[in-house]
Each structure stands twice: as structure tokens, then as C-alpha cells.
Design a protein around this nucleic acid. Structure first.
Lengths: 346, 346
DNA sequence: TTGTAAGCGTTATCAA
DNA sequence: TTGATAACGCTTACAA
């Protein structure tokens, strides 16, 4: 560490440490001349305040903790990236962690974050009931928490996400309008959002008089986005095919699956969109570079990040009792972009 | 923050704070019974040590800073992800930052990191001469730094990367062996690695008696990986085409470009690999899901991260003067995977 | 084996 | 406008 600190500056300039501190903190009760001398000396000697002493004394930090399931999921990466961009001018610093969908890792992350005395936390929970008590305790007694994306969680606070059932409804409806009726929904593990998406899917089928087939809801059982589930998906589709039940359209219910399914279908020599049309939730520019380019429902990560920061900072600056507050859930609008994977010119 | 601290524990148990501290730190000079009492009480009351006090006192942290250009580049994301995985059992915590290829943002990140009193730093510099003095000062006087990926930088320390010219040579050679001779190289901005990759490309051409055409080295001028450069790339290729100079093979020199070029070629209705074969540097599983699947040169991010951590921790634990040390550069082997985009059955 | 006391670098209170 | 002093929570000689 640097050897120059408030004391050494004080000694060098023949003033007291208190005065130096005041100069450095732009206090009003200080002569301009003294302040300038201190600032000049500090700059010349490359003075850097000791964060630990400062935090110990003030009990505050400008750290904001973020806990996401995975960095390797396009949506979460996108969200984190937006947070980084938007936090820059605000003077806060991000402390990002991954839970890998594990409550234990999430707990470790949360405990580390409060040890770092973060001013607030933004989280997408590992699962519906992960660390509810701990989060509630933190939110009520330590620092405010904002929830995003996975809103089915016991913590009472502001929640920011999208209208999953409606978006899935719309995506399904889009395929129906293109004349497809054998529509499959691809889901990940049940992480709360899944059931909403299934509901939207079912509603769309129902409203268009298409019978719901349980085997058309395909659960891909993967632990993390980088895992290889191609053969599993291929097998599932092949079984459907063998039973004369191959879907002619697929809604990708997670952003990882939405990308992978195109590769799987190509491997099976099925043409997209002719044999099977595909639309999927995903937040990556890669959608444009896939072949065929992928029709997507894209979550508004920029707005989500902005709103999360805004609400969090409001709570951080507020001394209001967070137990008694009325919390709103914000369901923002996604953007559906139709590309080649649903471009049926039949 | 929690109200329970060493003092309150001491008071509650009628012992001294020092004893509590010793119990908590598993000191040897303490009676087992006392230790157990303290630990039990601490656990029951959910005691959490104050990191700031601890760090202020000891002058040490278990933080490792990481500075990368972009999170949105598959290679860097992959690397960070590996760091996260491998650091977990080591008891250190990552503090990741992005420089966006900007020396100023890199400087901000570095200064923040040393204010956080990080024990060490792993960095891929913004550019060849970014913050050389600052980094040298940090490395010599504050904490060790390890360089990775972008090795052309003035800082004298351990450097970990790949043999860029050799890998590009091999990729180019692969295309030549498949009978292609009009081979183009796609480069990003000059970030140090680029010139090595160009060198490898030229050498391969030379060794196979293929004349080098300057217009076949295509510079894509983008600031960050998420930027849209499709139209620029399309225009460049179209110009070559108009001049009767359309390449029949492309080496993608950055991982962002390697993915995007497939979309661009599809947009131009050029068939890959028949019209143009493509192989590219990239570190994403998406390569498998592209259509055609993309032949890739993949950097060994796992090994790179492991080696970076190992060397860094060695230096952190060592008190040796880092000015006088002999530093080695480690060029690890990449993995080339040939997929459909180079599968020429002519 | 335990207690006392000093001190890490900073800020805040009070007095000058 | 400045200075002296105490305190934040923790660790560590040194003493007991």
C-alpha cells in the first residue's frame, strides 16, 4: 500500500490530520488556501484514501452486489453488461456473483456481500424458495434488495421482470397465425418463470382451439447453460418423430435452449422454418448470425437494469422502514423480432 | 450492519476481546472449551467479522482484481468464467472490471482495485501501451500483476497467452490443404495480437507459394463486440466480388468476427463452405449451433485461468522483490476443431 | 491460557 | 478555520 496517508500529509504540511481530512472531503469549514495546499500535496504524492479505514469509520460503501444464476446465459450477461454501463456515471461499483442455481452458492455470495458492507443488492434468485429468510433479513435490517427476472420468490421487495405468460402467448400465437398447429414448448428446469411461460403457451393453444399435448412440453434437464444437451434433445425429438408426432413449430422457452435447438434440428437434417419453425426467448446478437437467423423475444435488459438501479438507489438513500413498504412489481415489455426461423412463405 | 461484534461477544461471555479474536481465528494459544463457547455464541448470534476492520488491521485482503476489455467477447467471458470456477476452492474473491479497450477506464479500474487493496491483479491490457507506468508501479510496489491474452505490453511480469502466429498459420494451412488459395484474413483493430495473427497468415501463404494480397486482410473497425458491423463487412466483400476477387476461404481473426461473418455470408447468399470456407478463433459453444457449424481455434481458457491464478498466488505469497525477477511468457496450445464450415468434399 | 493496551487510517465531536 | 481526541472493529505484542 501507499505510505502516504492523512497523517503523513498532516505532518508534511504542519497541520492536523483533521484539517487534511476536511480538505480532502471538500468540507465547507476550511480555508480555500489550506484546501488547495492539501489537494496539491495529495495529488503530487499520489495519495489514495484507505477504503477500509473510511468504511470502518463511516459504516458505508458505494458497493452494489449482484447475484445472478449464470454469466454464461445470454440474458444474464446482457443484464450485467447493462448494469456496468449504467452504473459508471453513478459512482457505485458492482460486485457480481454467480449462484449456479445453487442456494448454497447464493448464500455464500449474499454473506460475502454483506461482509463487504454493500449498500444494496440486485438479485435473480437461485430458485423460488432460495434463501428467503436470509434475504428478508438482509432487506429489512442490512441493505435493500431488488429482485429481477425470477420474480416468484418470497422476498417482499420491488420486482422487475417481463410478462412471461403474455410473451409466450404472443410467440405461440405468432406460430399459429403462420398456420402451424403442432407446436412444442421447450423449457428448462422449473425456475419459476417456466410455469408462467407454460401457462401462456397453453392459453394460446386453447384460444385457437388447438388441443394441448403434454408430450409437446419438452423439459430439457440441464444444470448450467454450457452443458451439452444436444443428444438428449435429439432423442426426445426423434421419439416424437417415430410416433408420428413431430412438431412443426417450436417455442424456445429459455435463451440457452433457443440457440441450441437450431443446431439440434440442423443435425437432424430438419429444415427451419420449412419443417419446423422456431421462435425463442433470447438476449444475444448471435440470433442475427445464426442460420437461419432466429426469431426472438428479447427482454429489455437496458430498461430492467436502469429501473433496478433507480429503485435500489432510492431505497439506499431512503431511511424508510422497508418492512412496512408497499412494493410494486414491474413487468416490462419485451421486443419480438421475427427473422428467418419463422419466415414461412407457404 | 450486524450489532454483534467481538466486543459484545466478549462482554456476553465475560472474556476479553483478544480471547474472542483468538477463538475466532482458530489460534493455538487457546483452551478448546473457551474456543467452543465463543464459536457457539458467534454462530448462534450470527456473528460476521467486519472486513474493513480486519483489513485495516492486517493490511491484507483475499481479493483478486481482474481487468478485461469486454465481457461481451466470448473469449474473455469464458476466461472470467473459468476464473470464477477455479477460484472458489482457493478462498479468494474476484473483482472483475471492463476497460472497453479504453486506457482511461482501465486506469479507473486499476485505481479502484488498489484502493480495495487487492492481493493481486490479472489483466488483459486495453492496448499495447495502456497504463504501462501505473501497472509497473503497482506490480513493483503494491501487488503482483499477471498479464494474459494481449501480451504485447511493456509491463515486465508473467504473461499467459497462445501462440497467435502459429495458430493462424495452422488455420490458414488447413484451408490451403483443402485446396483453397484465395484466403482472406479478418482482423479487428490492432490490439497487439492482430499483428501476430497476420504474420502467421502471411507465412502460411508464403510457404505454399501463394501471393499475398493486401486487400485480403480485412480490418473490421469496431469499438466493441456488440456493435453492428454487418453492413461494413458486406460492403467490403461485395467490393472484392465486383473486382472478381471474392475469396473462397476466410480465417476469422477475432472471436466476435468469426461468428458474425457466417451471418454476413448467409445474407449475401453465399454458401459455406462451398463458396467460402470459414475457420475462426472463438471460444463459444455456439460454434456447434451455428449453421453450418463453425470450425474453430479455441483458446485453452481453463488452463490459462489456472496458470494465471497459480503464478499470481505464488507471487502474492512470495516476498521476493518483483523488480529483479526473471519472468517467463507461457504460450499455451489452442484446440482446433474442424466442423462443417471447412468441410469441403470437393 | 488469558487479559491489557496499542494501533491500523479515517472521520466526527468538541473545544480553541 | 483549525486542532486535539476519541472511536469504528479488529489483531497482536506483551504482560500476567
Amino acid at each position: 500500500m501507499s505510505v502516504v496517508n492523512i497523517k503523513t500529509i498532516a505532518k508534511a504540511l504542519n497541520i492536523s490530520p483533521a484539517t487534511v481530512s476536511r480538505a480532502l472531503n471538500d468540507s465547507h469549514e476550511i480555508k480555500k488556501e489550506t484546501k488547495d495546499r492539501v489537494l496539491a500535496y495529495a495529488k503530487e504524492h499520489n495519495y489514495r484514501p484507505n477504503t477500509f479505514a473510511k468504511n470502518l469509520k463511516t459504516g458505508k460503501t458505494n458497493l452494489i452486489g449482484v447475484v445472478i444464476p449464470f454469466l454464461s446465459s445470454p440474458f444474464f450477461l446482457d443484464f450485467i453488461d447493462e448494469l456496468y454501463k449504467q452504473i459508471l456515471p453513478l459512482g457505485y461499483t458492482l460486485l457480481p456473483f454467480q449462484s449456479q442455481n445453487s442456494a448454497k452458492q447464493e448464500q455464500d455470495a449474499l454473506e460475502f456481500l454483506i461482509q463487504q458492507n454493500v449498500a444494496g443488492i440486485i438479485i435473480s434468485p437461485a430458485h423460488e424458495k432460495s434463501n428467503t429468510d436470509l434475504m428478508t433479513h438482509i432487506h429489512q435490517n442490512i441493505c435493500p434488495i431488488i429482485l429481477f427476472d425470477r420474480l416468484h420468490h418470497g422476498l417482499k421487495t420491488y420486482k422487475i421482470g417481463i410478462h412471461n405468460s403474455m410473451e409466450t402467448y404472443n410467440a405461440t400465437e405468432e406460430l399459429i397465425k403462420k398456420g402451424r398447429r403442432r407446436i412444442s414448448l421447450l423449457c428448462g428446469k422449473d425456475i419459476g418463470n417456466t410455469k408462467d411461460r407454460i401457462r401462456g403457451y397453453k392459453n394460446a393453444l386453447h384460444n385457437y382451439g388447438i388441443p394441448y399435448l403434454p408430450e409437446y412440453v419438452i423439459y430439457a434437464n440441464y444444470q448450467d447453460p454450457s452443458q451439452d444437451i444436444d443428444s438428449e434433445l435429439t432423442q426426445t425429438l426423434r421419439n416424437l418423430w417415430d410416433n408420428g408426432n413431430l412438431p412443426n413449430a417450436i417455442v424456445g422457452g429459455t435463451d440457452t435452449l433457443s440457440i441450441k435447438i437450431l443446431g439440434v434440428l440442423a443435425g437432424m437434417e430438419l429444415n427451419v422454418p420449412r419443417d419446423i419453425a422456431v421462435i425463442g426467448f433470447t438476449n444475444t446478437n448471435v440470433a442475427d448470425y445464426l442460420s437461419p437467423s432466429l426469431s426472438t423475444i428479447r427482454q429489455p435488459t437496458g430498461k430492467m437494469a436502469g429501473l433496478a438501479l433507480q429503485l435500489l438507489i432510492e431505497m439506499m438513500e431512503n431511511t424508510k422502514d422497508r418492512t412496512e413498504m408497499e412494493y410494486q412489481s414491474f413487468l416490462l415489455e419485451s421486443t419480438t423480432t421475427l427473422r428467418k426461423s419463422t419466415d414461412i412463405t407457404a
